[in-house]
Design a binder for these strands. Structure first.
Lengths: 189, 189
DNA sequence: CGCCGCATGTAAGAGGTTACATGATTCG
DNA sequence: CGAATCATGTAACCTCTTACATGCGGCG
């Protein structure tokens, strides 16, 4: 390989989840979409081959649960080497991923679109983020009812990140929408 | 192809830039890194094949400028069909891309790392965003607080998005760092 | 009786990054 | 005189997504 490995983050997500208990591929997918979808996601079709690779590398083990005639359920557990690999990755600096915000790209090319189209995009985005804010706040309240236990502390922090980010997005949308309205009034005069 | 085309956004970025004047691949790359890197980026190695494809599809034309013994400079210009394609894309709803925030993933797995490591990551991230905020504010001031001319109006909006986002990130970092410090004090007691 | 949840996996390929290859010119 | 800029392009390769393949069991 010439291109230096941009190491798959999927494998670390898997190791991280398995670090708090054995799970099947299906379980992992569910956990991702139900708990951390606000900052991370995985597609099920990618999970299986990566689990296979982790197995081959000895970072996880696999046990099979056969229940009647259903497809065999494979439960994966992290090994000592897997834990080491996870801890190594956790210590490594976060690699910044260059942003690609499609909505800003469209806005940047705004001169080639109608104001109505732009406003429509921003409004849709605003609603999206407003919904997210509501969800995040609901989750936060649910977590916040109890004292900061170890198992929810970090989840709560990520939820707060979502709250901050959504609020900022809303404020920005309102700014942009106001400016677009001012422009429309000017054009009307 | 079975997987339904997630249409390359690179091609639209190219068309959008070419819509305000002919450029070479090299020029496009420079413009991306110098002007819109805060929300978009392209790698030069990917630009050339995509330009080639746009040429084959008749969305751009190419003229060659030979200057002495240097590699021939290819200048691309958008065609009427290219403009149509761009405008079509601009009208289409923004496709939301599921987030993957590595720093939050590491934080979420915080139970398997030392508090010092986590704090280090957050501090690094904070500095990063503080730098970005400074840059964004400088650019914003340069663009001029008020008279929104058409050619800077949309750029300014994207810069404002960066300002809002960076401020939110800083506030979040401070919150998290304070919580980590409180935890450390508790552990000390 | 139809849909959803459970459950695994493969195939195809898009999209994108990095390294390599090559060489002139400009500037400090 | 060495580094950066100009300038294009190819090769290798990886990551990840989507679609396909398959089928049971429970619930409304």
């Amino acid at each position: 390989m010439r291109a230096v490995a941009a190491p798959s983050r999927t494998q670390y997500a898997i190791l991280g989840l398995l670090a708090s208990g054995p799970r099947s591929g299906y379980d992992i997918k569910k956990e991702v979409t139900e708990r951390i979808a606000h900052f991370w996601n995985e597609s099920i079709g990618h999970l299986y081959p990566v689990l296979r690779r982790l197995l081959d590398r000895g970072l996880v083990t696999r046990t099979s649960e056969t229940a009647g005639s259903r497809p065999t359920r494979h439960v994966y557990a992290i090994t000592a080497e897997g834990r080491q690999e996870l801890e190594y990755w956790l210590r490594e600096p976060v690699v910044p991923s260059p942003p690609r915000l499609e909505i800003l790209l469209k806005l940047y090319f705004g001169a080639h679109a109608t104001p109505e189209v732009l406003t429509g995009h921003i409004e849709a985005y605003r609603e999206d983020r407003a919904r997210q804010l509501a969800t995040m706040q609901a989750v936060h309240d649910m977590l916040g009812a109890r004292p900061s236990t170890d198992d929810t502390r970090y989840l709560r922090m990520t939820v707060r990140a979502g709250v901050h980010s959504a609020r900022a997005a809303l404020a920005w949308c309102d700014e942009v929408l106001a400016e677009q309205q001012a422009l429309a009034r000017e054009a009307d005069r």
